[in-house]
Design a protein around this nucleic acid. Structure first.
Length: 564
RNA sequence: UGUCCCGUGGUGUAAUGGUAGCACACCUGGUUUUGGUCCAGGCAGUCGGGGUUCGAAUCCCUGCGGGACAACCA
């Protein structure tokens, strides 16, 4: 279901291309790569890319390299290298882990080779040292509608350029004083082809390469050559790199790289409703304290979803459902919610928990007795078996399951009404008590002993079945109810996205849980009947003080009726 | 007002010149000891205009609409 199997063959323009390239013998084996920059945590958009790159490799018995595109030391950090590695492995585990390259690659490990390639370009009179400042370059570069102007350094001899470039490496110049540019075409309508910078000076320690370098290659020069060095066949990236493709091709076509060389293919990035997906904005959320961190369960990061309780397979399923095209799409977040519900409905055991407790006294139930009742663990999976839950005279039910003056369509408790307590008895509400402020604080009910287990021997029906926990046995737990982080479908579309942060994205309540939930360990997911799917928070939950996250709520058709 | 890319139900995506299908969402009804699940059904689409063809979502032209690009970021 979550894997790409023969009965569910994936089909998209990239896979078509891969297939054609194999058929034409352009490549004999397929190598893809996932190339994150370690400057932030991975998010759902990266998940889509991971599923594509690893999926294509998997379907073609190829390999997929995890490579850090770490050419900008000022923005990058080992913290991100570690989180990204963990997230990738978690996401592909049990699915495509066998196609992951044995070693983890770093573009920074190619710096020496890249330098040699740059030297070759200079020797071939295809690159030159430029001393224009960024502000000056803006004028030289021109605008798309008008041609640019040639840099004064453009016609320098390659001997001189070689000397200058060596001295750049040796650290003779300050940051920004000089750059190495590819000599391409100042009249190109594509700005990226107007003599792009391929090396800049940064006297900065590198998180992976150490203090070896003070010049660093730019993305456009590094990426294609890294692909080539690794023997990548299909270099798959997002649409914004489309205009870079001519440069990708230029570099590989002007250097003696091995053949067949890689080619770049672009697809549109994931853009789900009620989320922001750019690393810059996610960083803003973290640094601005709007969330508790990159792994806050409300964040659209892989770490956030993992902590919240999503399974890797549900995220993969979502990425599969979303598809791969070049169309700038807006993906309904309900697709993601559906993928986790579908899975958890089959796999999660059922438990009872009351999150907004209202006390119920069963007046005709003896105070001395406390029996155990049998409950089904998962109606979707008989092999999950059964468990015993304690019942008593004093219970908690959900406050929302009682109405003082219920409308006709309300099938739950009201004065004089009878409902079924799941797996227990039919009860009838005889009266209710209020405090001085008029809040209902207690229900007084009677039960029908003949309905033990929830069946009426006389065949009478009740419309409603509600969940409950025994007050004397209940476990107290903090429960975190998450909602979407933004109130707008497209938080980035109008003005400041921070203005539409959902003030109710987190609702913390103290719940009453059935005793078996005290033993639930991290990584286990259960359904709280009639409420949703929950899991212990991996960071904050402790056996003496459990904390639960709501992964996703159940579909709630009553909420729709109630709205009308 | 440059170059490139993209337009299929509300949303996303298939159909690779031959019956426009699937999923999500929404709406009905049925089953149900979860107002969950499940089952049955429904709503709803090829951006416009020309052309090629026996036949066009698909190929061509054109118009319209949307997007990307002007870091010494990736």
């Amino acid at each position: 279901m979550n894997n790409n199997t023969d009965d569910e063959r994936l089909n998209d323009f990239i896979r078509d291309r891969v297939e054609a390239d194999l058929a034409s013998k352009k490549y004999t084996s397929i190598v893809t790569r996932f190339p994150p920059e370690p400057n932030g945590y991975l998010h759902l958009g990266h998940a889509k890319s991971i599923c594509l790159n690893f999926g294509v490799a998997l379907e073609n018995s190829g390999t997929c390299n995890l490579r850090f595109d770490d050419t900008n030391p000022v923005k990058e950090d080992v913290e991100y290298v570690e989180s990204i590695t963990e997230d990738v492995k978690w996401l592909i585990d049990g699915w495509a882990d066998m196609v992951l390259s044995e070693k983890i690659y770093f573009a920074s490990e190619y710096f020496e080779q890249l330098y040699e390639y740059a030297v070759q370009l200079i020797k071939d009179n295809k690159a030159y040292v430029c001393e224009l400042r960024p502000e000056e370059w803006e004028e030289y570069r021109g605008v798309p509608e008008k041609p640019g102007k040639e840099s004064p350094g453009r016609d320098r001899s390659s001997e001189e350029n070689l000397d200058l470039f060596e001295r750049m490496r040796a650290g003779e110049f300050a940051d920004g004083e000089k750059t190495l540019r590819a000599k391409i075409d100042m009249n190109s309508p594509n700005l990226h082809m107007r003599d792009p910078v391929i090396y800049r000076i940064r006297h900065e320690e590198h998180h992976h390469a150490g203090d070896k370098w003070c010049i660093y290659p730019m993305y456009d020069f590094t990426h294609c050559l890294s692909d080539s060095i690794e023997g990548v066949s299909h270099s798959i990236c997002t649409l914004e790199f489309e205009v870079h493709r001519p440069l990708y091709d230029w570099v590989l076509d002007n250097l003696p790289v091995s053949q067949p060389r890689p080619f770049q293919h672009e697809f549109s990035r994931l853009n789900p409703t009620y989320m922001v997906m750019s690393k810059r904005k996610l960083l803003q959320l973290v640094e601005g304290g709007h969330v508790t961190g990159w792994d806050d369960p409300r964040m659209p990061t892989i770490a956030g979803y993992r902590r919240r309780g999503f399974t890797a397979s549900s995220i993969r399923r979502f990425c599969q459902d979303v598809g791969v095209t070049k169309y700038k799409a807006l993906t309904d977040v309900s697709l993601l919610e559906n993928s986790i519900r579908v899975e958890l409905n089959k796999t999660a055991e059922r438990r009872c928990a009351v999150l907004d407790p209202l006390e119920v006294i069963i007046d005709n139930y003896s105070d001395e007795v406390s029996e155990q009742l049998e409950a089904v663990n998962n109606p979707e999976d008989e092999s999950a078996g059964k468990r015993m839950v304690p019942f008593g005279r004093r219970l908690f039910i959900e406050r929302a399951d009682f109405m003082e003056d219920p409308p006709k369509k309300f099938f739950r408790l009201g004065p004089g009404r009878e409902v079924r307590l799941r797996y227990a008895y039919f009860i009838t509400c005889q009266s209710f008590e209020k405090d001085d402020e008029g809040n209902i604080i207690r229900l007084r009910c009677t039960y029908d002993p003949k309905t033990h287990g929830g069946n009426a021997p006389d065949g009478r029906k009740v419309k409603g079945t509600i969940h409950w926990v025994s007050a004397d046995h209940a476990v107290d737990a903090e429960v975190r109810l998450y909602d979407r982080l933004f109130t707008q479908e497209e938080p980035e579309s109008q003005g400041d996205f921070l203005d539409c942060i959902n003030p109710d994205s987190l609702n913390v309540v103290m719940g009453k849980l059935e005793p078996s939930l005290a033993e639930l360990s991290v990584g286990e997911r259960v359904q709280f009947e009639r409420l949703g799917y929950f899991t212990p928070d991996p960071k904050d939950s402790a056996s003496e003080k459990p904390v639960f996250n709501r992964i996703v709520g159940l579909r709630d058709s009553w909420a729709k009726i109630a709205k009308k």
